[in-house]
Design a protein around this nucleic acid. Sequence first.
DNA 1: ATTATCTATAGATCTATAGATAATGC
DNA 2: ATTATCTATAGATCTATAGATAATGC
Lengths: 208, 208
Amino acid sequence: MSINEDVSVNMEVTILKAAEELFLAKGFDLTSTTQIAKKAGCNQALIHYYFRTKENLFVKIFESKFIEFFSMVRPERIHGLELHDKLREIISAHITMISKYPSLPMLVINEITINPGRFRKIIDNVRIMIAPLIMEITSDLNRAENSGSIRRVDPFHLLFNIVSLNVFMFIARPIYIQVMENSGISYGEFVEERKEQIFDFVWNSIKK
Amino acid sequence: MSINEDVSVNMEVTILKAAEELFLAKGFDLTSTTQIAKKAGCNQALIHYYFRTKENLFVKIFESKFIEFFSMVRPERIHGLELHDKLREIISAHITMISKYPSLPMLVINEITINPGRFRKIIDNVRIMIAPLIMEITSDLNRAENSGSIRRVDPFHLLFNIVSLNVFMFIARPIYIQVMENSGISYGEFVEERKEQIFDFVWNSIKK
DNA sequence: ATTATCTATAGATCTATAGATAATGC
DNA sequence: ATTATCTATAGATCTATAGATAATGC
């Protein structure tokens, strides 16, 4: 049960790891400092010694995961590509990125539902980080449209479609697992399959 | 605050209404019987008099919403239609259906995440209810494929795509509202717009 | 000396029940 | 008499803090 048996390691870090695991799996409200302490292998008071409040600990983890998550977005890598390859690359990279923290989308949505405003700062940052990507795609779409290689599409709806397709499978994972339980195909295989399927679906929809 | 000032009305029903509103908005764990009692305008013990446990009350509401939700699926209405119109109709009806309880998808996913197995019975029912719809769509797709009006598509992935597109906007509603807050377009308008956009996106993807 | 860790506990929930009182149906 | 509603409270959390003890760095 305890995350780290090696006493020589910093207990502050051990607590962070234990808390991360629990917060990602169950969210803020359903995780207790008692559970975190048990998993980290210390007593509950030590958590407050290092982080003062449960909220502090949560925000620390939440922000660091968020930054790590969005720092995976590397728009440079896709710069020179054709629209076709660029979209394939974006979809695949986005799904790979979420795969690393499959419960993060759900956590973000839940926490924003429970406490909108708490993450305004974070949302603003995300908006700033993804703005250039959106601008680039928009102008790519316009160019492709004018050259006649794709039909006329609304960039906002196209991006919303892609995000819906990419994220939903992670949100619905527990249902998928229950419904598909003896279908012989694992969840990881399904995710890989979706990368191609989603790209094909998107590309067939916009190409002329 | 209290849901029903009319004393002549059955308090059992008033409690159910108050509980429904709170459970749908915040889920099982974040709703307390104390809050339900406050909203219903009675004391907390009365809830246990009528429903014995909080869990009983929750399951009662959850199951009734689930049944109401899926009873809106009326596959007869789309029977005679061409694939093109049938898909348009299914997408529009599905979105309308969710619009009535926009927080239900989130609730279902959260509860299944927290307690998989608790809703096995319900999931089995859903599987049985939607099976004929899936069969029908599958054979329609095969027919359209053979007649050359659409390209070859995997029915499972197509349906998963449609569900992703239809449901995600409701799941992500709190984020959408925060991000789009002064964009001038209301959430309801956005949902209406999505009905057309999703259908066009889907149809363009599969048509030949 | 300072920092890390523990024990103990206050104060705030929350669910569920026991038992008293009020309202209703014969 | 029966059913509906209330008050009071037990017992189980949970977060946060105070204060004691153990470990570490000079």
